[in-house]
Nucleic acid binder design. Structure first.
Length: 560
RNA sequence: CGGAGUGUAGCGCAGUUUGGUAGCGUACCUGGUUUGGGACCAGGUGGUCGAAGGUUCGAAUCCCUCCACUCCGACCA
């Protein structure tokens, strides 16, 4: 392709609503254009990249015997009511009515449709197992879209669904997809990790997320520094602990006027935050509960939800109505259920609110207090790894893939069964496997950039090579050489961009660097005097002079 | 959902306090000089100042309503 005929709207400055590097660079390199919050158009270069990623995913999925299908984005409510998710899914599911006032939604995922499809066409155990996938647009009405295509409302996903006669078969496919995903992310040049995760609203028993390690990630991933333990912070489970110290202090009420936060209390009393206990009040469907955590720990909302169902933090008003003093709530004499985290349970001589304005208690112990102990908190850096080996290290990750063992959640609800060997109907067992294709684009950029722009791996770059002829429009010699090399590349099926614009060298260099094209050939009169061209790789500052006659072979050698 | 902030040319911004002809940089167009890392000179195109309403002789500016977008928080008791 020639630059003069391509729409590559590069910009010097990023719009100021672009916060993270991948968003800024995708806008500046002219890959995407924002239409509205969480909605982006893919411009020609952006689409090229997307298609490269899709190609790799297709090849690997096909190699793993998955069959590609394409399902509608518009889905009838009927199916969602059958699965029970019409009521479960919440506001992220965009619902609407058609002209006949029938209810529909835009598909945030496709379990319902594929299960319906499978129950229609898979009738015998002899057809199993089967795995279907599609690469298609999803819509999720996110509370807060952000970071460009990283968390957008409309996005492209590769989703796959497998059907099995039994759990063993499902587990085999799960492992196969695990390996397939590893091959995909490796080919995409990503530094990634598979981690154990919570299965969320999709449901099912076991799930593994694939995270690309990057500072801008929205998830915290916990690793052991001594074993291969790797788990999403949501899912790090702690077990009951044994007390290591005995109580020794006696209880004392101290004046802490207007000192309410754990941070301030600890500072005021000159103790560490982990010597304090903090109380959170939540509202559940079974009434209010007080949750006690060690001062330096944070509540894990997923664990809380798993224990108590949907919940909200109590508002100031509600706290007041319970006769509690916000900022000074303690563990003693509570009128509501007290739930204590395992690591708070083993604390001795601790500090907490006095349930009395402007006072805290020191030297408090659990003796005589009625409570229930559970695992409630998030892991923090330095915690002992739950597998007993080493300590936890926490890193940020971008979730680019997630694989689930669904079991019979959908097949049961939607009555998807086959006739088994014995002649009796058997419920199908399912697995499902997703990759956020558009998010992968952003993740690749988050891991591959410098101060000049993107550094695409060859596998996903919009072009493999850019030819930068200096004075293309003045020097007939340079133009002649550039045109010859360009044609040679085209004839050899090399994806090449010829910058034939009437621009100065600096602009052409800046644009090709910004766009991240891996290989660059510069043609100029000075080089031509020696029969040479200049070669430079995007990821290497070194410039090489090579003979023009060898240029094509040289490029080809770089692309293997 | 709460809290904060921002809407002025494709992008980045000033002007709003104190009402009085719509500005700057960049990008874009024309001509010229330049030509290996985002050149220079001259001229030019482009904006119903987010939308509607109100106050006023006069509104980007003051008042009201709405809309959009961004950030922060969903960590605190």
């Amino acid at each position: 392709m020639k630059s003069s005929q391509a729409l590559i709207p590069t910009q010097k400055e990023a719009p100021n609503d672009a916060q993270i590097i991948s968003h800024q660079l995708m806008i500046r390199a002219g890959l995407i254009s924002k239409l509205a919050s969480g909605l982006y158009s893919y411009l020609p270069m952006g689409l090229k990249i997307l298609q490269k990623i899709e190609k790799i995913i297709r090849e690997e999925m096909n190699n793993s015997n998955a069959q590609e299908v394409l399902m509608p984005i518009t889905q009838p409510a009927k199916l969602w009511k059958e699965s029970g998710r019409w009521d479960e899914y919440g506001a992220e599911l965009l619902r609407f009515n058609d002209r006949h006032n029938r209810e529909f939604c835009l598909g945030p995922t496709h379990e319902e449709v594929i299960t319906n499809l499978a129950s229609q066409y898979i009738n015998s155990y002899k057809q199993l197992p089967m795995n279907f996938y599609q690469i298609q647009t999803k819509f999720r009405d996110e509370v807060r879209p952000r970071f460009g295509v990283m968390r957008s409302r409309e996005f492209i996903m590769k989703d796959a669904y497998s059907f099995h006669l039994d759990k063993d078969s499902m587990r085999v496919e799960f492992e196969k997809m695990h390996a397939t995903y590893c091959r995909i992310f490796e080919r995409l040049g990503l530094n990634y990790r598979p981690v154990l995760a919570d299965s969320g609203s999709i449901g099912g028993e076991s799930s593994i997320e694939f995270h690309v390690l990057a500072e801008s990630g929205e998830d915290d991933i916990c690793f052991s520094d001594e074993s291969d333990y790797a788990v999403n912070i949501e899912k790090v489970a702690f077990s009951k602990q044994v007390k290591t110290n005995d109580a020794s202090a006696s209880e004392e009420k101290v004046l802490t006027k207007n000192i309410t936060s754990i941070e301030d209390v600890a500072q005021f009393l000159k103790v560490e935050q982990k010597q304090c206990v903090k109380i959170l009040i939540i509202k559940t469907t079974n009434g209010y509960k007080a949750l006690a955590l060690r001062g330096d720990h944070a509540l894990n909302e997923i664990k809380t939800q798993n224990l108590f169902g949907n919940f909200e933090f109590a508002s100031d008003k509600e706290i007041k109505s319970l006769d509690l003093k916000k900022g000074f709530i303690g563990v003693k004499d509570l009128s509501i259920n007290l739930i204590v985290d395992y690591s708070a349970e083993v604390m001795v001589d601790f500090i907490c609110g006095a349930n009395h304005w402007d006072h805290h208690l020191t030297g408090v112990n659990w003796d005589g207090i009625k409570f229930e102990a559970v695992d409630l908190r998030n892991a923090i850096e330095g915690d002992a790894s739950p597998d007993g080996k080493g300590k936890l290290v926490i890193k940020r990750g971008i979730e680019v893939g997630h694989i689930f063992q669904l079991g019979d959640k959908y097949s049961k609800a939607m009555n998807a069964n086959v006739i088994g060997e014995s002649g009796k109907a058997m419920m199908m067992i399912m697995g499902c496997y997703g990759i956020g294709v558009t998010r992968v684009v952003a993740a690749i950029i988050e891991q591959n950039y410098d101060n000049r722009g993107i550094i695409f791996p060859v596998n996903v770059a919009p072009f493999s090579v850019v030819i930068v002829p200096i004075n293309y429009n003045k020097s007939t010699r340079v133009k002649g050489l550039a045109d010859v090399l360009y044609q040679q590349c085209l004839d050899s099926d090399i994806e090449v961009l010829l910058d034939d614009r009437k621009e100065r060298a600096g602009i052409m260099f800046a644009d090709s660097d910004l766009l991240g094209i891996p290989h660059r050939i510069v043609l100029s009169d000075t080089h031509a005097d020696n029969g040479n061209v200049e070669y430079k790789a995007r990821n290497n500052p070194e410039k090489l002079e090579i003979k023009f006659d060898n240029a094509l072979a040289f490029i080809q050698s770089k692309l293997i």
